[in-house]
Design a binder for these strands. Structure first.
Lengths: 186, 186
DNA sequence: CAATTAAAGCGAAGATCATTGCTTTAGTTG
DNA sequence: CAACTAAAGCAATGATCTTCGCTTTAATTG
């Protein structure tokens, strides 16, 4: 949550409010109240005046999307480096599964699907693409046959997110199967 | 919309209200007001008392989910039969793309991701699975090598739905690529 | 066709949310 | 450090949603 300098007056006050609001949303999401969330509720939890939220974010969807993106791109995970593409992708897929199946993450993902109207690339996928690229480049450098980044996104990442978002079951075994499949098409 | 005998009193009246509500939701969805939808709004459009909706469905999410499922499983599409698996899957993928990229369908899909809590199989995917099975069985009967149903769902259907739901671009060319990929892993 | 009873309609009361003008606080700038 | 001003706090208002008790309609049953 490192002060990301939003605009005009980055000084302590705005940042403080923003952080308080972000964490309030995070808490409420974590408490399973993903649906029942409202602006006054968030404001109250954050110890902030509702008006401030209305003025800064306009509506709930905008706020939720912002928080969701911030939460979902907070990288963190070390990329695996096992020496083989299969090993790397398998480990990575497990990491991703473990990540997105956490209830709070799942809610964030679902929240992201709500407000969205026009086509716009989300930082989340770009991050995944970058991660994939690192592993694929390493594999190619070793002389391994490797699928394209797009294929990894389409056939490993997308199905997992799809399952999560639509409430279908996802586990590490499923992730492993997807990796197996994508390697078969290389 | 053929009277699906909901419960106790299937007679004309309940059915009439349900249909009116369903079409009202459909209209509002079609008008791009997917977000701004509220129960009183739906009730008004349907010429029905809001109380009736509150009593029958409880909250908006429940109603939306019900309508979404009903709308998304209203089959219709003829399954292609081109003589080759590649031809069948390609044509089918185009049909699916054309279907789910319609604004209204997209909104239904997103609505489906909202209310969902526990893991429960949605008729939508079962329908797609059945469709896939038909084409795959035909292919195998012809002696073609074919991927599994699960692979078709994971690597053709899932990525397309994923793209649609998250507002990424999807078109027939993309669909074609997915089919190409899945056949490569057979 | 009369009795029964789900389910819809109606209206009012209460709660919650969203908006707006004004005031106060506290970064920023010279 | 004083003037300036972006952004937050506050309070009142109007709009909207939600719930509840009661009445009315009409599908079902004998």
């Amino acid at each position: 949550m490192s002060t990301t300098t939003p605009a005009r007056r980055p000084g302590g006050r705005s940042a403080k409010v923003r952080d308080a609001v972000y964490t309030a949303v995070g808490q409420l999401m974590g408490e399973g109240k993903a649906d029942r969330i409202t602006i006054p509720l968030v404001a109250n939890r954050a110890g902030v005046n509702p008006t401030s939220i209305y003025r800064r974010w306009g509506d709930l969807d905008t706020l939720l999307e912002e928080v969701a993106v911030a939460a979902l791109t907070k990288d963190g995970d070390e990329l695996p480096d096992t020496g083989s593409l299969r090993g790397d992708l398998s480990a990575w897929a497990r990491i991703v599964v473990d990540d997105i199946t956490q209830p709070r993450r799942t809610r964030y993902l679902r929240a992201m699907t709500s407000a969205r109207d026009e086509v716009h690339t989300c930082p989340c996928w770009e991050q995944r693409r970058t991660q994939a690229k690192v592993m694929l480049d390493r594999a190619r450098a070793r002389g391994e046959r490797a699928p394209t980044e797009q294929q990894v996104l389409d056939h490993v990442i997308a199905p997992m997110y799809h399952h999560v978002v639509f409430g279908l079951s996802v586990d590490r075994e499923y992730a492993g199967q997807l990796v197996h499949d994508v390697l078969a098409m290389a």
